[in-house]
Design a protein around this nucleic acid. Structure first.
Lengths: 228, 228
DNA sequence: CCAAAAGTGTTCCCAATACACCCATGA
DNA sequence: TCATGGGTGTATTGGGAACACTTTTGG
C-alpha cells in the first residue's frame, strides 16, 4: 500500500438526448487542450476537493456545454492504469437524459465546440470514452425496461407515437404499436388530453398525452416490468 | 476546477457468504488503526498508483482477511465529502460471493480480527459502510433475479433444498418449492446426480445436484428471466 | 409411530403475442 | 384521390401462481 498516493479523480457525463428527427443522441465537446486536442470527448473534469461527485458533474456540464440536468445516475467507475496518458486518473461516470432543444449549447472553458451526435454516428473519441458511451447505452436499454423513461426526454405534451419512436430508438428494434399502447396505458402514468397534435406534413393528427408526474415517479421508484 | 487535487482513492469489498445454518453473511474486519479503531468495517484500502481497481480489491481482501475471490463486481462509488473524517476520500466499492467454509480467516495488516456476520445481525460499522452493505444487498437481490447465482455460494454438490434456502435467505421471502424447482430445472444448468444427501438429523434425504458449468456461465452472461 | 424434510402434478388465469382494417388530414 | 400516419380489437397460447398429499428417514 503506497505511502503517498497520486491519482487524479475525475467525473464524466454521458448525456442522452432524443428528438424524433435525430433519434437518440449524445452530448459531446471538442477538447481544446492536450491530450486529445481537437478530439471529441465526454463533458467532464476533475472533482474539487470539497465538492460532491454529483456536484462536480453538474458543474462541468454547465461550464462546458451550458446544459443543466436534473436527472443523473451513476454509471460506473473506470480506473485502468493507462487510460489517461498523462497520469493515473480514475473517472466516475454518470449518465442522464434531457430534451436537447431546451438548451442552447455553448462551448466554454476547455471546449472549443459542443454538439449532439446520433448514437449510431459517433466521431472518433478521446480516452476510453467510446467504451463509456457504450456502457451507458447498454444501461439505458436495460433501464428503460424496468423503469418508465420518457418524461425526461419528451415534451410535456406529446403524441403517443413519440413515445413509441423513443422506445424504438433506444432499444433499436421495432415495437408493435397496439401492444405497446395497451401495456403502457395499463400502468396509468399516462393521461390522454383532448388536444390534437400540431401537424407537420401529412397524416392524421393524434391526441396529445402527458405524464401524470405522481404516478410516474412512484413507478420509477418501485420499478415496473416492461418487457416489450 | 482545482489546480492541485488532494483526494484519496480507496476500494472496499462487500463479500457475501452463505451457509444454510448461518444464512447470508458479510465478511468484516475489526480495524486496529484510527479512525474507528476497534470498529467493524469492510475490508478495503487505498489503491496503488499503478494498480488496477480490481487488483487493489483482491490484494486488500487477501491481506486483511485471507480470502481469495474470483467473482467480484463493481457496485458503486461513494464520494461524499466528509465520509472519511481524516480527509477527502472516495471509495469504489465491489461486491462478491464466496463459500465461507472454503477459507480460513486470518486477520492481518490493519485488522485485529475478521469474521462473518449474518446480514440481519450486523454490528456497528465504520464510515458509511452500513450504507454500502445495504446497497450491495439490494443489488444482490436484484441480480439473483436475472442471473443464476449459486455456483459461487454452494458446494459442488448440494441438495436442492440448499438452493431454495439460499434464494429465500437472499430475497428474504418464502418461495414455493415446486414452482421454484420447475423453473430452475427448465434452464438446464442443474444436473441431478444419483447420490443422496448425507443426513443430519431427521428427514428424508434428497438427491444431490450439481451445476453444469458450461450452461451456467452461458446463462450468466446472457441473463435470464428469473422472477420468482 | 411421530417428526422432519423431500418429492411430485394439476388447474386456473392473466399477460404476451400475433395480426389487419378503417379514419383523419394535407397535398 | 392518394399518401401519410393515427387509431383500434380479438383470438391464441404459454408461463406464472396457487395449491396438498405421499414418501423416506431418524429418533
Amino acid at each position: 500500500m503506497p505511502a503517498l498516493q497520486n491519482i487524479k479523480v475525475a467525473v464524466d457525463a454521458v448525456v442522452f438526448g432524443y428528438t424524433s428527427k435525430e433519434g437518440l443522441s449524445v452530448l459531446l465537446i471538442k477538447r481544446n487542450i492536450q491530450p486529445f486536442k481537437n478530439t471529441w470527448a465526454l463533458p467532464g473534469g476533475l472533482v474539487g476537493d470539497d465538492e460532491s461527485l454529483e456536484n462536480a458533474v453538474q458543474r462541468e456540464l454547465k461550464e462546458e456545454t451550458g446544459v443543466n440536468i436534473n436527472y443523473l445516475e451513476q454509471l460506473y467507475t473506470f480506473g485502468q492504469p493507462g487510460r489517461d496518458p498523462r497520469n493515473r486518473a480514475i473517472s466516475i461516470t454518470y449518465y442522464g437524459l434531457v430534451k436537447p432543444d431546451v438548451f442552447e449549447l455553448h462551448a466554454d472553458t476547455d471546449a472549443s465546440d459542443v454538439a449532439w451526435f446520433n448514437i449510431k454516428k459517433l466521431p472518433q473519441l478521446a480516452f476510453d470514452h467510446a467504451e463509456i458511451i457504450s456502457a451507458a447505452h447498454t444501461r439505458l436499454k436495460s433501464k428503460i425496461l424496468y423503469q418508465p423513461v420518457g418524461f425526461e426526454l419528451l415534451d410535456q405534451k406529446f403524441p403517443f407515437s413519440e413515445l413509441e419512436k423513443l422506445y424504438m430508438a433506444v432499444l433499436d428494434r421495432p415495437i408493435d404499436r397496439r401492444n405497446f399502447k395497451k401495456k403502457v396505458m395499463k400502468f396509468g402514468f399516462l393521461e390522454e388530453t383532448t388536444e390534437k397534435q400540431a401537424l407537420e406534413g401529412a397524416g392524421r393528427p393524434g391526441n396529445l398525452f402527458r405524464f401524470n408526474t405522481e404516478k410516474y415517479y412512484q413507478l420509477q421508484k418501485q420499478g415496473i416490468n416492461f418487457e416489450l
